[in-house]
């Protein structure tokens, strides 16, 4: 784990050695990247495991990926072995001394979210992320996440069955993310992950068909970073009075991307697609953040969080 005390952050009760978090869907069930020499789970504060449902799911038919300008689309469709296999077979193989592991709970019904959460509650997992924003399944996912009342119902159901920290992963594909965040806090959410992917499509001009077999998918990478930053800023306004922390995520590849999210209000920052650009990017981002603290004279990364200074003289000329 990082020895630099300036990076240790408290995140809804979790002590993270670094504000860097590896994002669900990009790093399998936590150990896949460790095959790369030089990569260590110790380099990050937490790892969000692959989205998990009550029963095993095979996911969507290929093609599941499409590269886009400054990003990519994915439509994996929550391929996973089911919560029982994750708890019984995968969690025992994880080295919890290296980092914190966060389960990502998905479902098609409120009851499924609750049951998967209940199963993880009786496991060594450190925290639970509620994925109400997966754009790539026919039922549940973003259909819940785009409706503040449904989002709150899911959070409430999960809250009822666990005392572990609950992180709600919010969708950018909704009218007012602030209202959704407010309802989720009232329902018992301890933290937020902002944002999930933005729904999109790529078209093959030769076949005139969508590139993705699922027709549409979730856009990630630097292309969505400005959207994500604004959403983090908006959710931060709701969270700040409640001291609810945010994992800011969406297009972080380099140090300055991460710092922008901290400034916008994130306590931790998520790396997903950035790993596809550079599987060893976390070490570089950490070094860059250390330089940033040195250069700015700030004593701790927490001092960066929410330090955004808005223009107060914004003027509209007519």
């Amino acid at each position: 784990m990082s020895d630099d005390h300036r990076f240790k952050v408290e995140f809804c009760g979790l002590q993270l050695s670094s504000p860097l978090v590896l994002l669900s869907g990009c790093v399998g069930f936590g150990e896949e990247y460790t095959r790369i020499q030089g990569f260590s789970n110790r380099d990050v504060g937490a790892i969000c495991l692959k989205g998990t449902t009550l029963e095993p799911r095979l996911g969507n038919a290929p093609h599941r990926l499409a590269e886009t300008t400054d990003g990519m689309l994915n439509a994996i469709g929550l391929q996973n072995p089911g919560v029982e296999a994750v708890v019984q077979e995968i969690l025992p193989s994880l080295d919890f001394s290296q980092t914190r592991f966060i389960a990502n709970v998905s479902g098609s019904t409120v009851e499924e979210y609750r049951e998967v959460t209940r199963r993880f509650d009786d496991s060594p997992i450190d925290a639970i992320e509620i994925n109400i924003s997966c754009p790539n399944v026919k039922e549940g996912g973003v259909a819940f996440g785009n409706d503040p009342e449904m989002s709150a119902r899911v959070v409430e159901a999960c809250r009822a069955v666990t005392q572990k920290p609950l992180i709600t992963k919010l969708s950018p594909n909704q009218t007012d993310i602030r209202h959704n965040a407010k309802r989720c806090i009232e329902a018992g959410s301890d933290a937020f992950a902002v944002i999930n992917t933005v729904m999109g499509m790529a078209i093959d001009v030769e076949t005139r068909q969508p590139v993705l077999h699922n027709n549409q998918g979730g856009l990630s990478g630097p292309a969505i970073k400005p959207i994500a930053l604004l959403k983090v800023h908006e959710v931060y306004q709701v969270c700040k009075p409640h001291k609810i922390p945010i994992i800011g995520q969406g297009g972080i590849v380099h140090t300055n991307d991460a710092i922008e999210f901290l400034i916008a209000g994130a306590t931790a920052v998520g790396i997903g697609t950035g790993l596809f650009y550079d599987p060893l990017c976390c070490q570089k981002i950490t070094r860059g953040m250390a330089e940033y603290l040195d250069n700015t004279g700030l004593s701790h990364v927490n001092a960066v969080t929410g330090s955004l200074e808005m223009h107060t003289d914004a003027t509209e000329y007519t």
Binding site: V27, R64, F276
Partner: peptide
């Protein structure tokens, strides 16, 4: 061969039935 993102088994983007 298939479109691929992570190449280490982390993303399940390159699957085949």
């Amino acid at each position: 061969e298939e479109y691929m993102a992570c190449a280490v088994g982390g993303c399940a983007g390159c699957v085949v039935p």
